[in-house]
Design a protein around this nucleic acid. Structure first.
Lengths: 147, 147
DNA sequence: TCCGTTGTAACGATTATCGTTACGACAGCC
DNA sequence: GGCTGTCGTAACGATAATCGTTACAACGGA
């Protein structure tokens, strides 16, 4: 499975913005977030743009511009983020239509589709039970680096 | 998520071999399976090779060669197949280490790791509850093509 | 010895993600 | 009104995974 870090980075950005705002700041810049995630600001802007389209964050342009949460961390779930930044289904069908003249070729797609739908439903339920508030709590609970 | 058809094709191949053997045949060839899945025999051989390494199928070479099940369809689960053909974790961490001097950068990976492990555990439980026997049953239950 | 199939290497096509550079658009501020 | 900092987005290359394909050696029964 071509593992995807988009959900991780998006959660990172949201947690970062949330903590930054609790520290009294108005808006967060993609450059500061990118420094924390150790990546390029454009990568952050692209991801946050998808989160904005999903109504999770807002952006201001012009001088003193940046990003802010559109909703409380406690009301945003990983499912919201997942649906905003992850495209397709977990598992794919055949690239080309199987032989419909074969019993297996004819019945395999309906069979797998039902199984996959059940699994993805479960995945969504799990993701929906984790708020970004909890993510930030877990982040802050990580043990400090010992000197 | 770059959706993956490997699990689908592997399940297809196993169901096909299982049905073929119930029809009285000894071994199945990669060419026949590939015709049903509408793909190339080498793709099938590669996937079945991974299933053989996992102890799910056996292969014979020489004349009259081909593939046969190493275990009953009822004792093979989608989790067995998933572990045999799917490589990495569902979700990935950052490509580069986040800024350890930042509170979020320092705590995000442990936090997400815990969440992801929980989700993957759930996925495995779901996959483990589906046998290839059930897959074949679902395949055969698909409505016939109306003429 | 012959022949059909596996086992596997090699290559190209396709696709997704990521990093990077570049630049126009925007809005507050002097 | 111009300056400045940031967003928004296009464009390109690098990387990696999967898939399809060709090719060929290895094997083993007839």
């Amino acid at each position: 499975m071509s593992a995807n870090s988009r959900l991780t980075i998006a959660a990172h950005a949201l947690a970062w913005i949330g903590l930054y705002q609790r520290q009294g700041h108005e808006v967060a810049t993609s450059e500061k977030i990118a420094a924390s995630a150790n990546t390029n600001p454009v990568v952050i802007r692209r991801l946050l743009g998808e989160l904005r389209r999903a109504g999770l964050v807002e952006s201001r342009r012009g001088a003193g511009a940046g990003w802010s949460l559109a909703r409380e961390l406690g009301s945003i779930t990983l499912l919201d983020v997942y649906e905003a930044v992850e495209a397709g289904p977990l598992f794919a069908m055949h690239r080309t239509t199987p032989d419909q003249g074969c019993v297996v070729g004819h019945g395999i797609q309906p069979a797998m589709r039902g199984i996959y739908q059940d699994i993805e439903e479960t995945l969504r339920h799990k993701l929906a039970r984790v708020t970004l508030e909890k993510v930030l709590r877990d982040v802050l609970a990580a043990p400090r680096q010992p000197l």
